[in-house]
């Protein structure tokens, strides 16, 4: 008989790790909403005044600076657990099926979490390099608005941005519902239906909101 390997702590079991993923995932989703609300200021036809004021507030307000630490921690933990799960994916089924009709029993979004995760991770790195590192660490002489404008007027950058947002939509299309299930909050069918609807709206609305901005700048160059 196989002996039970007692987990070091409950946070090291597959269920515990998923609870961490779901908790950080929910936190990151609330961050997306705040981030989007700020970004939409870029659409104001005021030459970037409102957006720059917002960027200034975000990088100087002490309360926001503290939240920022939590945000980075949230990302690091979510990504660490994500990479752990992706790395042990093959371990539970070393020999796969010759024919697997998974489309008959699950959604494409739920089966492509690994792909969407990797694209969002690459996007995140490029994105941080472009804006956060440039502005906050290297002390770029340009305003945040100018950095965004320059980036989004480049069609390749905008294309990369929009494609990444589609994949973020994939991640959220399953992730939103999945996190509520992982946290045990889906108590009955009615809640399940509401969460599924809200998840679809969130997964469509948030990435769409982000994607409109580069498209707006791009269209204006013509």
């Amino acid at each position: 008989m196989r002996t039970t390997v007692e987990p070091v702590s409950w946070l090291h079991t597959s269920v515990g790790r998923k609870i961490i993923m779901a908790a950080t995932g929910v936190f990151l989703m609330t961050f997306l909403v705040v981030h989007l609300a700020g970004n939409l200021l870029l659409l104001r036809a005021d030459g970037g005044a409102a957006f720059n004021a917002y960027a200034e507030f975000m990088s100087t307000n002490p309360f926001i600076r503290v939240l920022e630490v939590f945000l980075f921690a949230g990302f690091v933990i979510h990504i660490y657990q994500g990479i752990y799960f992706i790395s042990r994916e093959k371990k539970s089924r070393p020999k796969g099926y010759a024919l697997n009709n998974a489309g008959a029993n699950s959604s494409i979004f739920s089966r492509t979490m690994r792909l969407s995760a990797i694209v969002v991770l690459v996007f995140l790195i490029v994105h941080l390099r472009h804006f956060f590192v440039e502005h906050r660490l290297l002390g770029s002489p340009y305003t945040m608005y100018d950095l965004c404008k320059a980036a989004f007027e480049n069609p390749w950058y905008s294309l990369f941005y929009v494609v990444s947002m589609v994949l973020l939509g994939f991640h959220l299309a399953h992730g939103f519902y999945s996190s509520f299930q992982t946290l045990g909050l889906i108590l009955n069918r009615r809640i399940e239906a509401v969460i599924k609807w809200a998840g679809a709206a969130f997964a469509l609305g948030v990435p769409l909101g982000f994607a409109i901005i580069p498209l707006y700048f791009l269209v204006k160059t013509f």
């Binding site: 196989r2 002996t3 039970t4 390997v5 007692e6 987990p7 409950w10 079991t13 597959s14 269920v15 790790r17 998923k18 799960f85 042990r88 994916e89 371990k91 539970s92 089924r93 998974a102 008959a104 029993n105 699950s106 959604s107 739920s110 089966r111 979490m113 399953h174 519902y177 999945s178 299930q181 992982t182």
Partner: peptide, 25 residues
């Protein structure tokens, strides 16, 4: 719940991604 989850992991079963394929089959 603690002991069954620990044994599930020890046996080498994977984690739950909430895809729902199980309930369909």
């Amino acid at each position: 719940v603690k002991r069954m989850v620990a044994q599930m992991d020890s046996e080498g079963f994977g984690h739950c991604s909430n895809t729902g394929a199980c309930a369909v089959e």
